[in-house]
């Protein structure tokens, strides 16, 4: 393939990767930003979102004979709500009792990771299952073809991002979240129910992961082990963007997605992953606040 089309494909792939990363990292960033909790189970919320999407869309198509688009929309509503509810229960039963102590919550969320993953294995089984895309359209370019749905995912990620940004910066809920993030004790003194904010934020983070999963699952498969890969990558994204900085997360997702997409088209993807992981680790070592984060107080 000639260099031009090669680069075009790499860019598409990079943007898709960035979109998926944004979708998964957004929730992680929110939870860390507001609650200072490193949620290792985040990838499992993503996986849960995909698996529930499979259940909902299969149910809709087999019970009512509806087309895939209806099942997709139903999944887009049901899946985040279900995942959010599960996350909230986990937060109330476990994280709250730990007082959000950083190290204990890491251990607890590792535990939650296994509980969610293995429960899905028990109920849903070990197979990768396909979820039909709401539409199937293949764009034929002179050099290669590309899935129209992939481009839809990129656009959807951008829209979702705008919505989150709007909620955080222009609404009362967002104000409360930002106040809690800035200084939880003072916020509490001003009558903000920190407790409820925390469980809301934790649920919201999980819901964002689930929405991302519903969008992504038609181009991947729903599988009980699918949560591990996005977890590592979204960690990397959140860190390089600066823990808790939304803007940084997005820029980092673009940076990592595009560079990974492009590097791995030209070189071995394993090598690309090695180099990017190493670079990110070194960023964290030499610039612990991330590229865009404020210095930790």
């Amino acid at each position: 393939m000639a260099f031009g089309p090669f680069l075009l494909l790499a860019t598409f792939e990079g943007l898709l990767q960035a979109a998926i990363l944004t979708l998964t990292a957004l929730g992680l960033s929110l939870v860390f930003g507001v609650m200072r909790v490193v949620n290792v189970a985040h990838g499992e919320f993503y996986m849960l979102g995909a698996v529930i999407a499979w259940w909902v869309s299969t149910f809709v198509s087999s019970m009512f004979g509806m087309p895939p688009a209806v099942g997709f929309i139903a999944a887009l509503i049901v899946s985040p709500l279900a995942v959010g509810a599960i996350a909230m229960v986990g937060e109330r039963l476990i994280l709250k009792r730990l007082n959000y102590n950083p190290e204990s919550t890491i251990v607890a969320t590792i535990g939650m990771l296994y509980i969610i993953q293995q429960s899905v294995l028990l109920t849903y089984g070990p197979d990768a299952r396909r979820v039909a895309a709401p539409f199937y359209y293949r764009i034929q370019l002179p050099w290669f073809g590309y899935s129209g749905y992939n481009l839809f995912v990129i656009a959807a990620a951008a829209v979702l991002l705008l919505i989150v940004w709007f909620i955080l910066s222009r609404t009362r809920i967002g104000l409360i979240m930002r106040a809690t993030q800035f200084d939880a004790e003072t916020a509490q003194a001003f009558g903000i129910p920190i407790d409820r904010v925390y469980s809301l934020v934790f649920a919201a983070g999980a819901m964002l992961a689930a929405i991302g999963a519903v969008l992504v699952v038609p181009i991947r498969q729903a599988h009980y082990l699918m949560g591990l890969d996005p977890l590592l990558l979204s960690f990397i994204t959140v860190i390089i963007g600066g823990l808790g900085s939304l803007r940084g997360t997005v820029i980092a997702a673009l940076l990592i997605g595009l560079s990974d997409g492009i590097i791995s088209v030209f070189f071995s993807p394993t090598l690309a992953k090695m180099i990017s992981t190493l670079l990110v680790a070194l960023v964290l070592v030499f610039k612990p606040e991330g590229l865009f984060g404020a210095k930790a107080r």
């Binding site: 607890a108 535990g111 296994y114 969610i116 070990p126």
Partner: peptide
Amino acid sequence: YTVAYMLAVGIALVLLVLFFP
């Protein structure tokens, strides 16, 4: 008993950190 034996690991971790840190 089950193929989901890592479930035991998950539950053990959570119980430990909650009750026997």
